[in-house]
Computed example of a mutant assay.
Amino acid sequence: MKERPILFSGPMVRAILSGQKTVTRRAMKPQPQKAPVDVVDGVPSWDSPTNYAGEVQMNTQHGNPCPYGKPGDRLWVRETWLEDPEDDGSWAYTQYMGCKGSPLSDIPKKFQKPEHCLFRATWGGPALIWRPSIHMPRWASRILLEITDVRVERLQAITWEEALDEGIGDHRFECDRPIEPDGYPACSCGSVGYVDAFAELWNSINGPAAWDANPWVWVVEFKRIEP
């Protein structure tokens, strides 16, 4: 069992905390030239026909393992954050302590815990100068995930139910009417379906034409566990 860091935006952090987000899709790098036939322990494989002395046989080729891990491995979430030894957002006290904005190595060991941190995704206080998620150390992470499944598929293969599991939620709908089986509201209010909402999210992260490119993606399912 290995632990690896993974970045999530504020809305996705909130979706994980609420139990709505249980899967993430990440583009494969490099992109495979053809469809994998299987993924075992996070490693995709392809069957290629090979001619041996006039007899065609299937030769299995293996690709690079999933960079996020395999079932049973763990992911600790990096999010936008700020150390706060007093644990209440008090600016004057932490400035006096010499912790805010100073090197993380200056923080006393007893304060190097997530309970002594603030997190932008769920912060409701005054404006603060946050530390980027990429700079979050392991000790500051409050969310630990266990991978339950890894597979490979085309991005646009996602269903509306799977888009819900991605944390899209109901915020794209403009009414409370029931939805049709295809994930669209049963009305003409102009709301956006779940898959279209996920496509917008994908483009906002990866670029305006990223959805249309329909790349092969790692589909990493997970469950939240106690750190």
Rank of each mutant, 00 (worst) to 15 (best):
K109M: 15
G69R: 03
K100V: 11
K70R: 15
P67G: 01
L82A: 15
W76D: 09
S90V: 10
S105D: 09
K110M: 09
S105P: 10
P65V: 02
W81V: 04
D84N: 03
L82Y: 06
Q61M: 05
V77D: 03
P108L: 15
Q95R: 06
T80G: 10
S102A: 11
Q57W: 14
N59R: 09
C99Q: 05
G101S: 14
G63A: 03
N64S: 10
Y93Q: 04
G72I: 15
E79R: 03
E83H: 02
A92H: 13
C66Y: 08
Q61W: 05
G63S: 05
E86V: 07
N59T: 07
Q112L: 00
P108T: 12
K70F: 15
D73L: 09
D106R: 00
N59W: 06
E83C: 05
A92K: 11
L104W: 03
G98S: 07
K100M: 07
S102L: 10
T60Y: 09
D87S: 07
V77E: 00
Y68G: 00
G98P: 06
P67T: 04
C66V: 11
G69Q: 01
Y96D: 08
R74K: 13
M58G: 12
E86Q: 08
P71S: 11
Y96I: 07
P85W: 07
P67F: 00
M58H: 05
N64H: 09
V77G: 01
P85G: 13
M97C: 08
